[in-house]
Design a protein around this nucleic acid. Structure first.
Lengths: 197, 197
DNA sequence: AGTGAAAATCTCTCAGT
DNA sequence: ACTGAGAGATTTTCACT
């Protein structure tokens, strides 16, 4: 993975605040030329750190229906099929997969047809059990990481330098300042996952 | 509230896909001039439908720590204070308030300091009980509403015309095609909320 | 990787409908 | 509310470091 420096994080911060901010504006704040900012943004997109430029919408003004939080209890063999389907479904906003293998998602459904709505987005034959909670407020907090800019070691919290390493564990990318932190993290992660059942 | 028409929803859809898409590009697709698109976007921002132009980031590549889902059990008098604090905290990504008055949030914390991390973002003195689930995948699904464009009545699903009405119930804006649907929705909402305890 | 300058593109303003 | 045209701003390209 390409090394993210502090300038990249500043750029991300500024674009998270306002994704249409001119590059010339950003350039001034991070002390680069506009083309240099443009280059870095291109690379951040290519590397997948920036998934897309998008809108933060007040969906309560937009989409009819009650917002709900649904927890699905299901065999681990079905997780992939179910989450794939959720991602493509109407009204689904967030999808979480827990290490126990549960799936939690948020969505909006018509108030008189919550069960039917769920039935449309998840194949209930694949699911052992589920429960639904109505939500009265749903909010996404778009921020890069506030004041803490540098990449920190997931194990010890130290700043990760170019000596550090990165690894993908349980579907997520983690950064470590040294190999021993990486090893210890993996142990702890496995122990935590086992505890959770 | 100003009426959202199909063109507005198309514009939102296009900007959700790529918030830096030129207005001239959008103009062509919705059959308007670029200044007209710009005007509509301004109004969508003013009315609060567009909260901001932002980035969808792959936070797993960015922020150290384990992603977790936390459920807080707390007195209803404390909900506002706790959620306000969460919104301003480092590492918190989503905040949900259920109609039962529970708070659910997602965040990332250092693997060796999950409890401490939670302690930093919520004042545990205000909380009756809480539980933590480690998450292995966390995904936001940014889409406006896919193929279903028109505003639909939260009660009966019919298209809401200018005869319809809108109301804010439990912190969310709902749209109705007629007053009787609005009344029936309120009843059902209250019954559902009562059931949920 | 970055710069500066020119070319191309996009956004905004404004008078008019 | 929208359009079209022009002014002004922004982004991209490219030769060079």
């Amino acid at each position: 993975m390409r090394e993210l420096d502090e300038t990249d994080l500043q750029i991300l911060e500024l674009l998270t605040e306002d994704a249409r901010r001119p590059f010339s504006d950003i350039a001034e704040q991070v002390d680069l030329s506009p083309p240099a900012v443009s280059d870095r943004v291109d690379k951040l997109r290519e590397s997948g750190v920036i998934r897309r430029f998008t809108l933060d919408l007040d969906r309560s003004q937009l989409r009819a229906g009650v917002p709900v939080l649904v927890r699905l209890d299901l065999p681990s063999t079905e997780v992939a099929a179910v989450t794939d389907n959720l991602r493509e479904s109407e009204g689904v906003e967030h999808v979480f997969v827990t290490v126990e293998g549960d799936v939690v998602f948020s969505a909006r459904f018509r108030s008189d047809a919550v069960r039917e709505g769920i039935d449309e987005v998840v194949d209930l034959k694949r699911v052992t059990d589920y429960d639904v909670t109505i939500v009265s407020e749903m909010e996404w907090v778009p921020s890069v990481g506030g004041t803490e800019f540098a990449l920190t070691c997931a194990e010890c919290g130290n700043t990760v330098t170019s000596e550090g390493e990165s690894d993908r564990i349980g579907g997520n990318q983690y950064h470590f300042c040294c190999p021993s932190c990486a090893a210890r993290f993996r142990e702890q992660y496995e122990r935590f996952s086992a505890d959770a059942e």
